[in-house]
Amino acid sequence: MTTTSFDLYPVGRVARVREAAAAAGLDALLLTPGPDLRYVTGYDALPLERLTCLAVPAEGEPFLVVPRLELPAAQASPAARLGVEFVAWDETDDPYALVARRLGPVATVGLADRMWAMQSLRLRAAMPGAEQVLAGTALRGLRMRKSEAEVAALREAGAAIDAVHAQVPGFLKAGRTEREVGRDIAEAIVATGHATVDFVIVGSGPNGASPHHELSDRVIQAGEPVVVDIGGQMPSGYCSDSTRTYSVGEPPADFAAYYEVLRRAQEAACDAVRPGVSCESIDAVAREVITEAGFGDRFIHRTGHGIGLEAHEEPYIVAGNAEPLAPGFAFSIEPGIYLPGRHGARIEDIVVCGESGGERLNLRPRELVVV
């Protein structure tokens, strides 16, 4: 089933956002182009120096301030059916003063978490008496708990990136560079239905020990493990992210041994997902398996991150985050083991917390693939 904007951006969401703003003690939310604005309205506005800003007062009607030349795009977006007033401004207008005037006196405003500093500072100048806090104060609970339509969109994204991983063994050959393989993968990401390519990591040999390795001209050698971490954004706006580790020919014996440890750690963490379990406890499950095998100091990052309209968002699966999982939470489980100067491995699936357990959205085999 293909999700639609009616499913992903329901008319009632604006009202729920207004209630969340009031519950957080905010007089209004001010959302500029980015994931917060898209979550509330479905409008994937261009991030420009010209201000586009959705104002959602805790009391009163929301309105969207938009440059006149961007008005047709806003009217063509899902925001047009939400009952939000569009307020167009002209090139000689001051849109920040317009927002302040229309909003009226406010004590505290929540700014989109990814608002440009330039916009934040100009809004502060236009509303000098208003305290500025992050809109995430109000939005985090809504955005973390995905609706059925959002989970369906993430399933589509998971299936699309799985289709790319199915092609990766055909791209990996000794004598090819990481960059050449990465180019093929990027083309496949778009060909499988993604609107954009977010990232392509191809870490061969010692480069696999760097979790966020950039593509390089290093030539892949026979017998080397290769970490492939890839993701993109679907037309729905929802993201994919999945990692598999491959070996070009038979890998070193020590690598094969710790890869099996990693596989068990990832499986144990996925199996531990259920409502009420804390985010940090999922991290602890994966970390315990790896630590008991003697590789604790080689697992150098958190176990996972939330995913939705952003590739990285809340909740974070990390020590110190006592947030209990709830149905609809979607996040990665991606433990890794890294031996600097030699090789590394990571296995990553997106998992959604259901009513009684977790659902993996990535279904490619997790055993080491030898090509």
Score class of each variant (00 low, 15 high):
Ala135Cys: 01
Ala23Gly: 07
Leu54Met: 06
Leu309Val: 01
Arg101Glu: 15
Met144Asn: 13
Arg302Val: 15
Gly237Gln: 10
Tyr96Pro: 13
Ala253Asn: 08
Gly208Ile: 05
Cys239Arg: 13
Gln75Asp: 04
Gly193Cys: 14
Ala97His: 15
Leu111Pro: 03
Ser278Asp: 04
Gly237Cys: 11
Arg179Tyr: 13
Leu134Gly: 09
Pro340Phe: 05
Glu280Cys: 09
Val168Arg: 01
Ala286Gly: 15
Ala152Ser: 03
Ala257Ser: 11
Gly357Lys: 13
Arg68Leu: 04
Ile201Gly: 00
Thr192Pro: 05
Glu359Leu: 11
Glu288Gln: 12
Asp217Gly: 12
Leu48Ser: 15
Val273Asp: 08
Pro365Gly: 11
Tyr258Leu: 12
Ser216Cys: 01
Val66Met: 10
Arg50Gly: 02
Leu98Ser: 13
Ala163Asn: 00
Cys53Arg: 02
Ala293Arg: 02
Leu26Cys: 05
Cys353Arg: 13
Asp198Tyr: 04
Pro57Met: 08
Asp113Ile: 02
Glu267Met: 11
Ser236Arg: 07
Gly320Asn: 09
Leu363Arg: 07
Val99Gln: 10
Asp44Glu: 15
Asp44Phe: 13
Val371Gln: 04
Ala345Thr: 09
Gly205Phe: 12
Val14Phe: 09
Ala130Met: 10
Phe331Ile: 11
Leu361Ile: 00
Arg155Glu: 14
Ala319His: 11
Val17Thr: 04
Lys146Trp: 08
Ala79Gly: 05
Ile185Val: 14
Val106Ala: 12
Ala20Gln: 05
Arg16Cys: 01
Ile161Thr: 07
Glu367Phe: 00
Cys239Met: 12
Pro365Ile: 08
Gly203Ala: 05
Ala88Cys: 07
Arg68Phe: 04
His194Glu: 03
Phe63Val: 14
Leu134Tyr: 00
Asp90Phe: 09
Gly249Val: 13
Phe86Tyr: 03
Arg114Asp: 15
Ala149Pro: 00
Val200Arg: 00
Gln119Leu: 02
Tyr259Gln: 00
Gly136Ala: 07
Pro67His: 10
Ala79Arg: 06
Thr52Trp: 01
Arg102Lys: 13
Leu111Thr: 03
Glu367Gln: 06
Pro252Arg: 14
Ala269Asp: 07
Arg342Phe: 10
Pro275Gly: 06
Val318Tyr: 13
Tyr316Leu: 14
Leu123Lys: 06
Val84Gly: 01
Leu103Pro: 00
Asp217Tyr: 02
Pro33Cys: 12
Tyr246Ile: 05
Arg264Thr: 01
Leu363Phe: 02
Glu214Tyr: 07
Leu48Asp: 14
Ala265Arg: 00
Ala149Met: 00
Glu150Gly: 03
Cys53Tyr: 02
Val219Lys: 04
Leu368Ala: 02
Pro235His: 07
Gly83Phe: 07
Val151Pro: 02
Ile201Thr: 10
Arg114Pro: 06
Val190Thr: 15
Ala45Cys: 05
Pro35Trp: 12
Pro128Gln: 09
His194Ser: 05
Asp254His: 09
Ala163Leu: 02
Ala195Thr: 14
Ala160Ile: 04
Val351Arg: 14
Glu148Ile: 00
Tyr39Leu: 08
Val106Gln: 06
Val56Leu: 04
Thr192Cys: 11
Asp297Asn: 10
Val133Phe: 05
Ala28Glu: 05
